[in-house]
Nucleic acid binder design. Structure first.
Lengths: 212, 212
DNA sequence: TCCCTTATCAGCATAATTTCCTAATTGTGC
DNA sequence: GCACAATTAGGAAATTATGCTGATAAGGGA
């Protein structure tokens, strides 16, 4: 039996969810709460499996409640159920380690399936959320603008990001330290920075070189 | 009609996939290829919608083929279909902007559903892949080990990561440059690095300080 | 109280970095 | 051929950074 708790400040929506879930085999809604504090309280006092959590609630909001509950009751699978599709909150919530993120326009069947899957240990994301995650990955490696750095300059910049000194870079590339310095001066000018530290950080920030 | 191309070096698996898909309404396998180059060639010569791509293929591998096809034919939705669940490749592939990543143990129904969803613009990930993505998010904010750095040292390290010089740090914190240097020496020793660049990079790498 | 850490400042010596200058060679494109 | 960029190298000088030692003061804990 999967024990479910619903946390949402809209009584109508709670009622709707409860009615959807109460006819499902093996699923039982054991409680409903109307705010984040209520969710925290029940998580502390009662064992259950799945928490359907709205983010926008009065008082202690869903985000804070998630943070507390994730810390205190790691065994509870939290499924965020929200209308909020905006970028800022999504990543904040996902970083907390929630097990699912669904939008409120899901069809009942998807919701029920998701509850079962989360109970089985599978993470669940709404397609648009998956898209945002992937989008972040792909957009993050679009240097595009490599500031007109030549191949050699990129190579040297990579060594700077590895923490090499000018001398070491020269030895590694079989060129004189003087040449390294010249390249670096050009790199600094092109990246619009003053020293190797700023260059290294900017290179990492702009993904010109991989930090690893 | 969703036009599908299968790229896999195992004839048996290709045949199996084709038989699964050929009875589906609205889906037609228009071609099969056995290596990455073949996938690239057909993508260049023939319009189609979905490419089921194995990663481990002889010659031009799936990863390279994905890269080329993604660049030349953005309208083709690539679904990576592989046994490879290892961490390194997953992120490389996802960064290319593939539309789906499934493991070869999927049931036929899931595969068909996934093709339809990708065709409709939805991204598709195997649960374990979603888990890895989420795991990366949550694990990324665990500094924990601050290497015994004191508050003041952390503060100074933050300035280093901003690209400040010793003089600038001194001015900002209303202390002498000498003091800054002393703190830095201690920081270098504790972080086990030789200079400010390595310290800044290590701080970023270990999330001791936020880069931005 | 004594010891340790932290934070502050300083001097000295050395090393590393950075800038500015010139200049040769090579390859690419017009 | 000519112009231009990339790569290479060197000289000279200024600036910055680093290591080491020493010193003072405040605060916490055994």
């Amino acid at each position: 039996m999967i024990k479910v708790v619903i946390a949402d400040d809209h009584p109508l929506l709670r009622e709707g969810l409860r009615r959807i879930l109460e006819f499902e085999e093996g699923i039982r809604v054991i409680s409903e709460v109307g705010d984040g504090q209520g969710a925290i309280n029940i998580a502390r006092s009662t064992p259950f499996d799945i928490l359907l959590m709205d983010l926008n609630m009065p008082g202690v909001n869903g985000l804070e409640a998630c943070r507390v509950i994730r810390r205190e009751r790691t065994e509870i699978g939290i499924i965020v159920l929200t209308v909020d599709d905006s970028d800022e909150k999504i990543f904040q919530v996902l970083q907390l380690g929630v097990a699912g993120y669904l939008l409120k326009d899901v069809i009942p069947k998807t919701l029920v399936d998701s509850i079962r899957k989360v109970y089985a240990g599978e993470p669940i994301l709404a397609p648009s959320v998956t898209g945002k995650l992937l989008g972040q990955l792909t957009s993050s490696n679009t240097p595009k603008n490599n500031f007109g750095l030549s191949n050699r300059e990129m190579e040297i910049l990579a060594y700077v990001v590895k923490g090499s000194s000018n001398r070491d870079i020269g030895i590694s590339l079989f060129i004189s330290e003087k040449t390294v310095k010249n390249h670096l001066s050009n790199i600094f000018r092109k990246l619009e920075v003053e020293d190797r530290t700023q260059a290294a950080l900017k290179a990492v920030k702009l993904k010109l070189v991989q930090l690893d």
